[in-house]
Design a protein around this nucleic acid. Structure first.
Lengths: 226, 226, 226, 226
DNA sequence: AATGAATGAGAATTCATTCAT
DNA sequence: AATGAATGAATTCTCATTCAT
């Protein structure tokens, strides 16, 4: 079971194998239901080795969360086109986000679904990463507002709220796009009935959905119930 | 802990007490980490009675999911102002949704966070409920498009995708609003720094965020990366 | 479930219903695996009533053992043709035994299979009944020996041993005859392939199998390994 | 209790220790009443180790049944004097049977008393072993009939029935001989009041009891009730 | 005569974790 | 660098039995 028997592997490599196995297992089973036995077997090593290197289940989960967080932030950061206009920056960041989560569905599942539901101590780690992204988006919205010459009309906290909502919507879209459930047609772009949207298509959709509304908000046009 | 000792209670009442305890425990701990011992104690009864009435941990969780699903759908349905315009209907439904999730944060946590991550069998129940809501929102967007006289321009599957995104954004907002973490300012409305937004405020924000963008989409104005 | 609802039944009748249910349940499940719940439901009454009348699971099992023992001894005793020759008496007793066990397979299963394997306290009850039957057979063999005029040649304890063996063979035959397993042809009499033998056929077979050997023994002819 | 504390024992040895403890416990308590706790303690190990090696109570019971079945068949097979006459072969096989069951009373109790009364799935294993022995005895009786030149007179199914009866009688004798109840004198051979018969004595008794009768049957002499 | 409500005590099974090599 | 052997501490679930009416 697991990887083909290969003895005497350098520690760094073994650790990566273990964490890969852990990501996959935590994503599929959840923190509690994942057993160290399963992780060790999937990694192709014995359990004591996992403990020797990663210390405990909790530490292992934390290490996984951190690794995946860092990777996600790095992917988004790398995707942003620094010198473009704010909307284009946002779009390129979203594209990086959707591309990374699509390529690493298990990592995303651990961050988005598991880590946040298994106790405060794990959640804070993810919250920190999320805050970093929200801060970045907040900056973009503020910049766009300034570009549009309406700086005074959107309160800082309102901007932050909108950033939160936008990030939330992106997460929701990513989750939906990665779901393997065939609950009907995928509603994105030209890639055909039922196909999973590409990262660009997902980013387009979200920009259309939200950015336009933001633009109106910046112009002071508000929707009101009455 | 639990309710004040009150012996010889009719079955229906006891069952409700147990399910209340279960909702709370599942929400806080997650399905696996929640123990039947803890649930029983919180309900103020012995474990065997929980098994006698609710059969098994799995059945109990399913019962909880179903009860909370039904309650949520009922709350949203009841809140919708049937004869109003599409946007007003959506707004009123969102208000009902935010009000209910704010009043029943544990129920919402079970549905949104726990049930969807603990195995397919639980997830389908929630997926069914969600599909019902998405269907309703899809209808409203289509109605709005017709009112706006642009029926032909938005493909059915595009409408469905937008409905998904909107529901996802609402869920994300509800989760954020209910989060007990004090990670900074709440960005909504006039209720003051750090305060949780009222249901109406949350609905306003979402309408501003999304509905305007939808309006532009319906008029054929699209955001494009270039 | 259970008998049709009929309230206010006299105690004697209720007790019989309960013991009938108990016999059936103990026979099918064994003492430990049989639950008082199942017995009560099968009897069509509530559990507290079973306890009120029969006191405890152990008492219930003992009551069942006693009732079935008494019934079996009575059936065998009634079947014996008192004034016939010894071999005819034995044959008629065996016929009664096979007839009763065939008519009451659950009772026989409780006595033969369950009671003897669930602890000394239950086994002694059955042992007493068995001893009574062995005593009766011992007397018949002794009488036959005397009739055959060879009293001195068979020691008392040898006679007792033979009686034990004969009773054992009869029990084994009864068990086999009552088994519902279709492991091949039934080897008895003219009742057709695969049919269960009648009580008379079973008795004939056993007499042929054993009584003839006993006759030779009584004449001093012994089988020896050399 | 259990073996003297000896840590770090190879798996094969530990498994044997556990199965020895299991045989003993199942024999004394029955399948249901035997607890894994008791078995583990008797084996001198912790419960988790029993589960690690033997998987479950059911698997453990099955493993025990299989091991004891194989051992019994091997013992009988080894004891048979292949080139002797049919009666001598039967006698030697019976001797092996009685010797083995006397040496392994717990194993025999598990096979004969427990396995057959704890549900079909266990019973079939024992039934298969028993069928093998019955087949062997059937062959011997048929051979004896041929030696005696009366092949045509005993129908095949009658032979099979007699073999069943003979095996049943042997089982019954073995059970009686092994019984720890002191219900009176043992009736066998010259070994003294109350002593358990040797395997040879038991075999002699059974041959005298049954083989002579078979001889008469083969000569066409039948006992009839009239 | 009869039952709905309730539980203490245990049973099987799992799992994170350590020890000795 | 790596592992076979081993366990303490839960956790789910069952069952005989009793109480109050």
């Amino acid at each position: 079971m697991g990887a083909a028997k290969s003895k005497r592997v350098p520690r760094a490599v073994r650790e990566r194998q273990m964490m890969d196995a852990a990501v996959r297992t935590f994503a599929r089973r959840g923190y509690r239901a994942a057993s160290m036995d399963e992780i060790a077997e999937l990694a192709g090593v014995s359990k004591p080795l996992v403990y020797l290197y990663l210390n405990s289940k909790e530490d292992l989960f934390n290490a996984v969360i951190r690794r995946e967080s860092v990777a996600l932030v790095a992917a988004v950061t790398a995707a942003v086109e620094r010198d473009a206009a704010a909307d284009r920056q946002l779009w390129s960041g979203l594209t990086g986000f959707f591309a990374h989560t699509a390529e690493h569905p298990d990592g995303w599942a651990v961050l988005h679904q598991q880590a946040r539901t298994q106790g405060e101590s794990f959640a804070v780690e993810v919250a920190a990463m999320r805050a970093e992204i929200v801060r970045f988006v907040t900056g973009l919205i503020a910049a766009a507002a300034k570009e549009a010459g309406c700086a005074g009309e959107l309160a800082d906290r309102e901007v932050a709220g909108l950033a939160h909502a936008l990030v939330g919507a992106a997460e929701s879209l990513a989750e939906w796009a990665n779901a393997r459930t065939a609950d009907g047609a995928s509603a994105f772009g030209p890639s055909g009935e039922g196909a999973r949207p590409t990262a660009e298509e997902a980013a387009d959709t979200l920009m259309n959905f939200a950015w336009s509304g933001l633009g109106r908000l910046m112009r002071g046009e508000r929707w009101t119930p009455a």
